[in-house]
Design a protein around this nucleic acid. Structure first.
Lengths: 184, 184
DNA sequence: TTTAATACTTACTAGTAAGTAAGTATATTT
DNA sequence: AAATATACTTACTTACTAGTAAGTATTAAA
């Protein structure tokens, strides 16, 4: 038997980003994993516990991403970062930040707090990479690194959402422009 | 008695953009309007009917916005457009496109189709205004109007979402950069 | 070998979701 | 004055939600 607890987190993550936080249920997870509803509650007593575990998983993934890309140059790092969104778009998901943001008023404070942590961690890393690129003269943008980091996140976050609606190549267009924007 | 049907649409719109499509219920609406659950169903037999009416309301609002701003210059038009997001941010809402996009896989095809119409209508208007600004040499951006229109929408859509999480002045930062980007 | 922890299932509860059928009060039309 | 349409309410159903209490099989520790 595979690690059920981990499977629940992975599936929960997929469901949140496919259907939204309020549209996925313990029954969805139980059914897909071939276990009973109560088994999910055994591992995560309530939905908030599961939500927190899902954010923790993203926090860990982000740390792993940082580690695995630390030897790369600034441009490669940003490109790898955009690759995360390529996968999101390919799976027709949205990113966790967007999924949580639209349901913000229905999620508990502890989840909100952990999401803040995640968003901050992401923005901090982006700022460092952008500054690195500026220092190495790989990037030549004129905005502050804080602003630029923000713009990259907003563009990619929304590109996956907009791609769901408009379809076509809008995602790729935004992605391309984000890269161009590093040098302009 | 005020127009109940219109009040339902207005309230439904507010709830969708506050809590998300799947988190708001007919009971929420009934309670706030001091009517019974079934009264909401009288006006909108099912949630999809209400969803469609809410998008129609946005479609109308967009047409009104276009009419009311048609005498303005390109810069003023874009500024007025950003003003819509200022209000969204002030009310701690998200825009309809974002709210629907994150719940995309749980909404019916007819709603998806109408959302496509709305997103297209919005992008088409933006493209026209951007081209107008380019022609009048009010704007000097080098990207295509298609790309620039896309970037404005993604940035503003995500700025309202991100503002919910990070708080602070991130919304204003993105908003300011969007305006700057018209001339860079 | 008993004890205890782990990972569940069975069987349930209380609450809420969308949705409906049938009745009622109030206007409006014929 | 009778018939009809409008805008509801009452009272309900079915389905699903999160969540729980109690029991069970399996493994690990004492």
């Amino acid at each position: 038997m595979a690690d059920t607890k981990e499977s629940i987190v992975l599936l929960g993550d997929r469901l949140i980003r496919k259907k939204g936080y309020n549209a996925f249920s313990y029954a969805d997870i139980a059914k897909e994993l071939g276990i009973k509803n109560a088994a999910v509650h055994y591992h995560f007593p309530n939905k908030t516990d599961l939500g927190l575990a899902i954010i923790d998983y993203h926090l860990e993934s982000l740390e792993n991403f940082k580690k695995h890309t630390q030897e790369l140059g600034p441009f490669q790092k940003i490109n790898a970062f955009l690759g995360i969104y390529d996968h999101i778009k390919l799976d027709n998901k949205v990113c966790l930040v967007g999924a949580m943001a639209t349901d913000w008023d229905t999620i508990e404070g502890v989840i909100q707090d952990k999401m803040k942590l995640f968003a901050d961690s992401l923005l901090i890393w982006l700022r460092l990479v952008l500054q690195e690129g500026l220092d190495q003269k790989v990037f030549t943008f004129t905005a502050s690194v804080e602003t630029k980091a923000l713009m990259i996140v907003t563009n990619m976050l929304a590109a996956t959402q907009l791609a769901r609606i408009t379809g076509g190549t809008n995602f790729e267009t935004v992605r391309g422009e984000v890269l161009k924007g590093l040098k302009a």
